[in-house]
Design a protein around this nucleic acid. Sequence first.
DNA 1: ACCTATTTGTACGTATGTATT
DNA 2: CAATACATACGTACAAATAGG
Lengths: 232, 232
Amino acid sequence: MPKLTLWTAIRDAIAADIAQGAYHSGEKLPREADLAQRFGVNRHTLRRALHDLVAQGTLTSRRGAGFFVAAQPTRYEIGQAPQFTRDIQQSGRFAEKRADRIEVRQATALEASLLNGAQNVVVFEGTGLIDGVPVSWFSSKFDADRFPDLAQLFSEKPSVSRAWKELGITVHRSRTDINACNADSLMAQRLAVPAGRALLKTIAVDADENGQPVEYGESWFVGDRLTLSLSS
Amino acid sequence: MPKLTLWTAIRDAIAADIAQGAYHSGEKLPREADLAQRFGVNRHTLRRALHDLVAQGTLTSRRGAGFFVAAQPTRYEIGQAPQFTRDIQQSGRFAEKRADRIEVRQATALEASLLNGAQNVVVFEGTGLIDGVPVSWFSSKFDADRFPDLAQLFSEKPSVSRAWKELGITVHRSRTDINACNADSLMAQRLAVPAGRALLKTIAVDADENGQPVEYGESWFVGDRLTLSLSS
DNA sequence: ACCTATTTGTACGTATGTATT
DNA sequence: CAATACATACGTACAAATAGG
């Protein structure tokens, strides 16, 4: 196993130590100085390796305290929460949502083209939580002229599905695009994860029974806190 | 506005430049020395900012060449019949699969349970490339006793859909689970991305016309090189 | 509640290696 | 082959957060 650089070799050595149980979950690693001495490298070379393991999610660090083996991610078993996963498929609709912003503004060109030429949009942004832990952040847009009461409905209760029910509209998923991205600093703060953590991003367009698009939403999910499940 | 450190401020400034179109997709950024001078910081402080943008997927770097704005992702339609190569090529790009491993071995408990009690499995692992760039790595398992010719077919041509055609089997997606994870060092090497990069992971079970599971596959997609697209 | 030693984080400096142009 | 530009590696200094007395 020829490692091209010192720091990658050190990174893999530490990762192997953790995998073999030399350090347990949550345990503090030796301090930088000791690790650097053990591997016979400069402190910054060692830090390069540690930084990479933090980016991978293997470690976490606390300034002044030390480096710690990251806690085991709580993974949702496949098929164990069918209602939850089904809701997620439909563009991030949770029973528990916290509204972070509700406003009406002029539509951008992109929003207008996706929402059948809407001139103004209702913007509904918020956080999805499970047991108080943020698992998603969403930003949805609706035609403000066609649905003038939406902003009021959202402020009463942060539920999109309830709002559609109130309005007597039935919606279905029209298209959903999915990819993965690393959390930037803003999204990391919203989701309470370190920057760089893998996120599942969905861009969804929902339509009414006539096929008219009624919602355009973007959602970011913490990758290791849930799984999207598609059945056919 | 959290600008706690120099390097985060520089990172956000460069990210804002890119978002506002100062640099286009694929375009080369000014070299480190010039950027460092512009921001009035040491080269390493600038590199810290650039490194973070590379980790986020905003930039890519090539030693000796420069830093470049990352390309836009390719879309991949998830239809009923999974056909990676044909689907991608319909979007005007050259897609291919490279076989990295073909073997027959005893099934694990998980594989047996998912493949209807199979005792032995054909393991087919490889890399999916678009325009020569790796975008996915896959590991698929099949019932080796029910399909004894699969290994030979894969070694002739690394195409799952072609193999099913040869065998006269029609398959459809039974279930697909999707989540996001950060690349560990092994997967990073396979996909030619830096460790920590966000990956889209799918776990799929495909079935034949009788609903019998015939393939159990895991795939890892480079998040910023591919978008999964669901239509209904 | 306060101080202090410890430990990680940031920033700059210098040199050399390596791939690209 | 030479010049350019990114990558690695060692070094010094100080700032900021933590932990312990």
